[in-house]
C-alpha cells in the first residue's frame, strides 16, 4: 500500500487530449454499431406515440421521456464503466469532459461542447451541434412551444450521474428544433452524495 502521490496523480485521468483519444478509440474498436437513422426513426415513433397517449399535453410527454431516460441511465452507466474502466471523477469539470468526450462519443458518436460554466463552477452546459435523436425532425407549431424532444437525454444523464454519487439536475435550455440558436443542455450539481457509512461504523 505505498502512497506515492506523484505517480498517483499522473495516472489518474490525464489531460483533455487523452480523454478524446480514449473515447475515439473505444468508439472505433469496442463498439457494435447500428445505423443512426434507425435510432432516429425508433425514437421518433416513441415520441409520437407519447404525444398521442397524452393528447398533446407536452409537459407530460417531457416528464415521461425524462423518466424513460432515467431508467436507461441507471443501467447504461454500468455498461459505460465496464467498457471504459474509468474511475470516479475528481471534479465537475472532469465529469463534464468525460460526459462529452467519452460518454456521448461512445454511445452517440457525437462530442458536445462543454461551456457556459456558472460562477461557482457548479453548473455547465452541453452544446449539441449534432443530435442523432432529432435528425430531420421538424416539430409542429404546438410542440415547438412546449416539447423538449430529446428530453430522454436529461433523464439518462441524471440516472447515470446518480449512480456515481452525483445528485444533478439536468434540463434543456434551448433546442434548434424549437427555433433556438443552439441545442443546449444544462447540468447542475446539487451535491455529491456522500458514500453511505455502514451501520455501526459511525
Amino acid at each position: 500500500m505505498s502512497a506515492n502521490s506523484a505517480s498517483i496523480s499522473a495516472s489518474s485521468a490525464g489531460p483533455k487530449k487523452s480523454l478524446k483519444t480514449f473515447g475515439d478509440d473505444i468508439w472505433k474498436n469496442k463498439t457494435a454499431k447500428i445505423n443512426a437513422e434507425l435510432f432516429t426513426l425508433t425514437y421518433g415513433s416513441i415520441v409520437s406515440q407519447l404525444c398521442t397517449d397524452f393528447e398533446r399535453d407536452f409537459k407530460k410527454v417531457n416528464s415521461q421521456l425524462y423518466a424513460m431516460g432515467y431508467n436507461i441511465g441507471v443501467r447504461l452507466i454500468e455498461d459505460f464503466l465496464a467498457r471504459t474502466a474509468l474511475p470516479r471523477c475528481d471534479s465537475l469539470a472532469q465529469t463534464s469532459e468525460v460526459i462529452s468526450k467519452c460518454a456521448f462519443k461512445i454511445f452517440l458518436n457525437v462530442t458536445p461542447q462543454v461551456g457556459n460554466w456558472s460562477n461557482n463552477k457548479d453548473a455547465f452546459s452541453l452544446f449539441l451541434d449534432e443530435n442523432p435523436l432529432s435528425d430531420f425532425v421538424e416539430l409542429p407549431m404546438d410542440a415547438a412551444k412546449e416539447l423538449w424532444y430529446s428530453n430522454i437525454l436529461c433523464g439518462v444523464l441524471r440516472g447515470a450521474l446518480e449512480m456515481v454519487q452525483m445528485d444533478c439536475d439536468v434540463w434543456f435550455v434551448n433546442d434548434v428544433l424549437r427555433g433556438g440558436q443552439s441545442t443546449e443542455m444544462r447540468v447542475k450539481l446539487n451535491r455529491i452524495m456522500k458514500d453511505e457509512i455502514p451501520a455501526g461504523e459511525d
Binding site: M1, A3, N4, S9, R88
Partner: peptide, 23 residues
C-alpha cells in the same frame, strides 16, 4: 466488507486529496 472498507478509506487518505487510489 469492513476490512475492505477500512483499508480502502485509509489508503485513500494516505494518497492525498483528489485521487482515487483503489485497493
Amino acid at each position: 466488507y469492513g476490512m475492505v472498507f477500512s483499508l480502502r478509506s485509509i489508503s485513500q487518505k494516505l494518497s492525498g486529496e483528489g485521487s482515487h487510489n483503489e485497493i
